[in-house]
Design a protein around this nucleic acid. Structure first.
Lengths: 338, 338
DNA sequence: AGTTCCGATTGCAGCGCTGCAAAGGACTAT
DNA sequence: ATAGTCCTTTGCAGCGCTGCAATCGGAACT
């Protein structure tokens, strides 16, 4: 049995297909009486518009794609959780893509890929993309970038003030009396901008407090996972002069670091204080609970979606902007104790 | 500037649009020479097929939707992480939807919703759906259900053997010498089938060991989150006769339960052993690491996608099947100690 | 009453592709 | 040389909807 179409409804209601379309889309001026007739017909036939046909006719898909490196990283999962309803509210479906932080994969997605027609715009949280990749992207694709990238003026960028947030995190460690502070997560190479901003905050906090930075306490990691934190912490604790506090560039890193410290019989925060970044749910339930920098994820999601939709609707190219969401220092047991 | 179309390519290559289509789709018999001409034209113009138009013409969207209650629940995130590549490999895009476990929301999704045309099939992990909701669904929607539902024969069901897995988990607790074992997560109402199967396993293990079940040690929770585990554990520990082991119906519940126990100065597993369910990544890094039942998520994903694609391709209705993925008991520190 | 005006409704064409079946062309067999 | 065969290529129509501009009919005006 064929799916009922606009034409079927029109025939039953005794009006033209175009009028049915007008009713369905809440368009323009339709008399109450015709509207009633049409709606009755729609109900009787159980008509539902064919989105595929509408997409072709309008040239828009009504979908946006959100690209994250890892879906199972709590920070991204929580962010997506915020983006989906925000987009849905504006009439957009959300496609989700996952790149494993692979530069090539990310590059293809923002390039002239064959899936382009499937979405009207993209929100991407790149990990492997270099600035040049962003420059080489499909210019027809409305784009909002999350995380730490400076826009070249043709796309928007949404994030928190990482330097300020990192500074606050480290200042907090200093405020509770720590003096040998390590940092876990630096990425001193082109695609590691996110990490570098945090390192900059790390330095800034030291400087503000008049403390020297022990460069050997800045540990690089290729990713921001638990295992990276666990490994780095092990290296730190193997030293003759271990730190008394650690600033981790993600809560997962912090979780891994704490795991290692506790496993060695150290007390957190008494022997070594730990602060993370992201405020993922885990951190509120782990043992000890993890002090962290909490980005306003809802705000990030809303800003990104609003801006993307604006960009999609724009007939002219609009200039890229830098949007900052709020963040907050959330001290918990891993720095304050119980 | 207009996007180039099939027709543009055809004109440049000096063939008919239909032939270009044949080349693009790798169809049928196309001479090497024509293929070469067409491919050259495609490359020169940077042509990419318009998926929207193709969708309308074929009546298929090439998308499947995966519906989960919560995106930020690690188990579902990890499952999605497995489903996406499996689907992509078969040429399907994955849409993700999140229902908050809301029965009405879930019901709408499997019903005659207006988004129906956006996907060719659905994989759903229902939480609030009753059997009757499943019966009232849109029969035109190819459907694969994850988790604990018995199929009515018109859709497929993929899961692990929950009763067996739960039995193993509890048997493990018994094997390490525990005798007063609690269960956290029972849901003795129609939509709580998942939980009930685990409770059944809990009982079965007791019976097999010749142990009586203390009904008061079976604690109900409305959800399977950390907070539920934390709260339930608190109640258990407030008793005059607290248990010496707990079987938690998810790793998150276990995590919350452990958090409470440790917070009260108890040792895990010495004072109270804890085992979870799901094998989420957290459990491998928490302190202590969490013993668990590990469902083969990759297998679940593959089975679900394969079956759904089969169902989509089928011209005739095909009977629903029950597919079982493997599971494994993974003992860690929360039962074995350090 | 005739004309103008304006809002409600309609018809047409086309979005870019594919399914179908027929046409065309090359080659073989007689 | 002609008919038959088989494979490649083509043309047509249509998927179901919307943009646009024209049309229609009644109300308002002179």
């Amino acid at each position: 049995m064929r799916e009922t179409t606009l034409r079927d409804v029109a025939d039953l209601a005794g009006v033209s297909p175009r009028t049915v379309s007008n009713v369905v889309n809440g368009y323009a001026k339709v008399t109450d009486s015709t509207r009633a007739k049409v709606e009755a017909a729609i109900a009787e036939l159980g008509y539902r518009p064919n989105v595929l046909a509408r997409n072709l006719a309008t040239g828009r898909s009504g979908q946006i794609v959100v690209v994250v490196p890892y879906l199972d990283t709590p920070y991204f999962a929580e962010l997506l959780q915020a983006i989906i309803p925000a987009a849905r509210k504006l009439g957009y479906n959300v496609l989700i893509d996952q790149t494993d932080g692979d530069r090539q994969h990310e590059g293809e997605l923002i390039g002239r890929g064959s899936r382009r027609h499937l979405f009207d715009g993209m929100i991407i949280s790149p990990l492997g993309l270099a600035q040049e990749d962003l420059a080489a992207r499909d210019p027809s694709l409305p784009l909002v970038v999350l995380g730490e990238r400076v826009s070249d003026g043709t796309f928007d960028h949404v994030g928190i003030d990482d330097v300020a947030a990192s500074t606050e995190a480290v200042a907090h460690l200093i405020a509770i009396g720590r003096r040998r502070i390590a940092a876990i997560g630096d990425q001193p190479y082109p695609t590691g901008e996110a990490a570098q901003l945090r390192t900059r905050g790390f330095r800034a906090a030291h400087e503000a407090a008049g403390l020297p930075v022990d460069e050997s306490l800045i540990i690089g990691t290729t990713r921001f996972n638990r295992i990276d934190g666990a490994t780095a912490m092990a290296a730190l604790l193997d030293r003759a002069d271990p730190p008394d506090a650690v600033f981790c560039y993600s809560d997962l890193v912090a979780s891994g670091a704490i795991h290692t410290a506790l496993g060695r019989g150290l007390r957190v925060p008494e022997d070594i204080a730990v602060i993370g970044y992201d405020d993922i749910e885990d951190g509120r339930y782990s043992q000890p609970t993890i002090s962290t920098i909490s980005p306003d994820k809802k705000a990030i999601a809303q800003l990104a979606v609003d801006r993307l939709v604006l960009r999609i609707a724009a007939s002219e190219p609009i200039p890229g902007v830098e949007l900052r969401a709020a963040h907050q220092l959330v001290p918990r047991q891993s720095t304050l104790g119980y």
